[in-house]
Amino acid sequence: MKGFAGERANGKAARFANREAVQNWNPASYRTLAYADNIQVLPVPQVEQFVGVPVAQVANFAALSPLPATIQYLYPDTSDYYYRYGDGYLYQVDRGTSLIDALIPLMAGGFLPGQYLPNSYMNSYVPAYYGFNSFYPDYGNVCNRYYQGVVYQVDCDDGYVENVIPMYAGGYGVGQILPSAYSYYNVPVQYRSLYYDTPDYGYWYSPGAIYQYDTRSSMITSVAALLSPGFTIGRPLPMGYDVYNVPYDYRATYYDTPNAWYRYSNGYIYQVDPVTQLVTAIVASLLT
């Protein structure tokens, strides 16, 4: 993460500059971005100006509120500071000074909404691994680009970052918010009888994991299941998946022979040709 706000927050001069900027702040010059369900995100060039400013002053411009009780455990207050959140960020407030002394974006990634992806990254496409490239296709004037474990949805013309979707191993997880336009129920069919929406919590799939999220805040509360890239019939086993990994209860039935291997992935047991290493069939569904 680049220290955007940190650079501004370092030193009293920067803090005073931020206070002055907020006093003269003109919200009309910023685009407001939409995230998940009913979540708006303020562009980071705007929000970074809030660091070092009294929380009461910032509350005039940002939708600051205490975390919902159901998710306060994710960001516990301490005797030195407490948290407020809103508009896609968590604000750490110093109890002694009542100044906002840190900003935690609820989206991981090196670039944040409201910034511009460097032009050189516009040719950095989403990888095929885990099927990410088909899960995040370009559409309309929205381009999906990838850099160091994070998918950036940007304006195709100017690289304006509209959405940040870190991949699971890139640090996406608990305490962050769902990306926009992906908060509909999309759990893979074999997991739907296990992970279904309730009035309080929803489940959302992104390649690599099924997440549980708080429906009020769209904040991720847990990783319900870890998934693999999955196998495709007629295609070779992905690298690293040729070790025998069938669950105990199925080993007596599905054991490797010179003519057939069996491998587990995402709720299914697949048959594999040992010679060609091609996946030939699904032979068992374990969850349905």
């Binding site: 940002a62 306060q72 207050d77 407490y82 309080d200 509360t221």
Partner: peptide
Amino acid sequence: AAAVLALGACNKDNNKSARGAPEA
């Protein structure tokens, strides 16, 4: 939110989550 903030400031001792992590 400012109003909520003021209420929260009057109740500084109540800064522990009422609940823990939900069952996933």
